[in-house]
């Protein structure tokens, strides 16, 4: 056999399972970081500061984007290609907005005199940078994935081959969204 055909005997597609196991892995990374955060916070020399409001806006944006990508899935399943492409683009734009807002948030902290790196930095700020920064990288990955399937969607006439990909990307996107909500709550109130 030239190509490897997926011979699956379960209902869930192997790629979906792959993704879900991957979520477990990503969760562990952030669990490690947030545990380290808690340990560190309980020790001397911890700087208390408030998160800039920008992070509230970015949270709102990412919440909305979860909704739009779910609409994209729905339209892909219904075969409505134009609307499918439209919702993908909107999601990508919201994703880019989120990225910009987060970066501006880091800047705002620096302006508040909360150094994130360098000799004046306190690990409270550095942790925020590393945790939110790593999350942002995961989101960038999601934007790239959306860009890739958008390109494919532009070439394709029908959506039959696209449903699996968009479902996978949407699951990932929701995951990154929920991950941020957790981190946001953690950074604001728990940590």
């Amino acid at each position: 056999m030239a190509t490897t055909q997926i011979e699956s005997n379960n209902k869930i597609h192997p790629y979906k399972m792959l993704l879900w196991v991957g979520f477990g892995s990503i969760v562990m990374m952030f669990a490690g970081l947030t545990s380290a955060y808690i340990v560190k916070k309980s020790q001397a020399n911890w700087l208390e500061f408030d998160l800039p409001n920008l992070f509230w806006f970015s949270t709102l944006v990412i919440l909305v984007s979860s909704f739009t990508i779910q609409m994209a899935v729905k339209k892909a399943k219904a075969g409505e290609m134009d609307q499918y492409r439209g919702f993908l683009s909107v999601t990508a734009i919201l994703g880019i907005t989120f990225i910009i807002l987060q970066l501006r948030g880091f800047q705002a902290l620096e302006l508040q005199n909360v150094a994130l790196t360098g000799v004046r930095s306190n690990s409270a700020g550095s942790f925020l940078l590393v945790i939110a920064g790593l999350h942002l990288l995961h989101l960038v990955g999601g934007v790239i994935a959306i860009a890739v399937i958008s390109l494919k969607a532009r070439a394709a006439k029908s959506s039959t081959n696209q449903v699996l990909s968009v479902e996978l990307v949407a699951s990932y996107w929701h995951f990154v969204d929920i991950l941020w909500i957790y981190l946001f709550v953690f950074l604001n109130w728990v940590g």
């Binding site: 562990m28 990374m29 669990a31 490690g32 970081l33 380290a36 790196t117 690990s123 590393v130 790593l134």
Partner: peptide, 25 residues
Amino acid sequence: GVLSFPVLLSGLILLIFDRNFGTSF
């Protein structure tokens, strides 16, 4: 592996920051 390696990765990332970006983890 899938559950423990990411934690090492996070530790290494903090180490990279301490080495190169002046942080104090």
